[in-house]
Nucleic acid binder design. Sequence first.
RNA 1: CGGGGUGUAGCGCAGCUUGGUAGCGCGUUGCGUUCGGGACGCAAAGGCCGGCGGUUCAAGUCCGCCCACCCCGACCA
Length: 580
Amino acid sequence: MKQSNLFGRTLREAPSDATTPGTQLMLRAAIARPLAAGLYTWLPLGFRVARKVEQIIREEQDRIGAQELRIPVITPAEYWKETGRWDTLEPVSFRTKDHNGRDYMIGYTHEELVMHHARNEILSYRQLPAMVYHFQEKGRDEERPRAGLLRVREFVMKDAYSIDRDWEGLNEQYWAQHGAYAKTFARMGLDAISVESDTGNMGGDVAHEFQVLTDVGEDRLVFCTNCDYKANMEKATRKIESAAAAPSNVPAATPIATPGITSIDALTSSLKIAPKDLLKTLLMKDLTGNVVAIVMPGDRELNEPKLRKVLKTSDVKFANDTDFAAVGAVPGYIGPTLATLAEQGPLPLGLNARLLVDASVETRPYVAGANKKDTHVRDVLPGRDFKGETVDVHDVREGDPCPKCGGRVTIKRGVEVGNIFKFGPYYAEKMKATYLAEDGTHKPLMFGSYGIGIGRAVQTIIETHHDARGIIWPLAVAPFQIHLLPLFSKDESVRESAEVLLKELEFMGLEVLYDDRDDSPGVKFADADLIGIPFRLTVSARTVKENAVELKRRDEEKATLVPRGEIVSKMRSLVGERRR
RNA sequence: CGGGGUGUAGCGCAGCUUGGUAGCGCGUUGCGUUCGGGACGCAAAGGCCGGCGGUUCAAGUCCGCCCACCCCGACCA
């Protein structure tokens, strides 16, 4: 491939809105170009990388017996309506109608469609297990695309679906995919680790995400510094010391005047106590508008995914003024319902809402809101003065004890490059997808789903494989294997020599980008470093004179001279025996 | 969807406070000289100053509305 013909030019400076190092390099190296917010065109260089990433995934999927098929991008509404996702995906999906007015969605994902085909193709247990996958565009009207290809509104995903008879079969396929994912990411140079993740509200108890640690990651991950515990923040828990017996000498709860003091900060400074000695009470509501009160220590943060799971809802929001009024809450002075004080008269009845008490609330006296303007209450003893359902809805934080071994946990950022998920019978039950079992009964198909985002993988490779000069592609996914740079001079022998070498390398099936541009050496070297092809070969008057070729690996500083007679076989062995 | 920011030549930016001829660097085109780490000279092309409306003799600059893009938070591969 002649570089002068390459569609897409390198940029000396990155556009100012490219913020992450990888995004800047992705744009500068002509991997992809933005078309609109969250919509990117692969340029030829990037598309070659994407195809190699796909091929690695394909090989590893095939290896565990998954079969490739292809489901359309445009999907009819009827299947989504069967599971109710026609409505729940409304805010985040692209939709259209045909000329007859029928509704369609650009596939947000493809579970419903796979399940539809499965119920038609699979009638008997004899046809199970089955596993299929495809590479297909997903359309997601993300509210906030970011960081180049990391989060976009249209992207190719490899999504695989396993279908089996029972949990045991599902489990086997799940772990087969887990193994395939580990190999897949390793092959493309991604150091991905599997962490437990939230299963959302679609049933199933196990899900893993494959995460690559990098500061540009959107997810926060909790690791134990002592054992192998690792989990997404959305799922992570911490060890909580078993509740100590309630201290017996706690005075009765007493209202105190706190005029105008409505925040944790204000309370800590005016009462001279620490945030951890305060109780904060949050009012949240679920999708259907039910309001719940959550009591947690003043120094802890609410974890919304955990709360959603407790409430079995797909969305939670902070309550608004109307909600406050409806449950009898006073903004700034909200607290758990203190039954005794309410009965005795000094305080109003309290909240008319379901009360959840976070597990991090200890059995010791706290200061809490009184549900009365300008008033708090001291010596509030959980269990004695109020009761609620104990739930774990707080964020784990740096230094908390590990739930597994009690060691300290640490928090890092990561990019989710893949996830695997056991749905179980969830979709089959919604879509009446059953098979005839050996015992003559109809049973639901057990379902698992497994996704990898291609563009995100490519962007993550760049984010984790670069230096100040440019990208450093792992050989397996590099757009080309060899970058051949002739340093032209008056002496035509350089051009002749380079072009003969090019032919020989290409004849061996090696992928070569040939920089035939009439530019100065500095420009060529700088572009070569930017584009990041693993092996750079330089042919110049100097090397021709010595009957040699200069070889430099992108990931090493030093270059070596290789005799002309050996260079082709040397490159062949460096790149590997793989032929097209 | 909440909060913040930015729109001026292909890219990076200045000009806006204080209204009066649209600029700089890089890149691009032509010619010449160079040729091992983003070369040099000469000449040139390239802008509806995001859009619409307003104020004004006069708007890139002031005012209003809209649009687009980016960043931070909540959701996803």
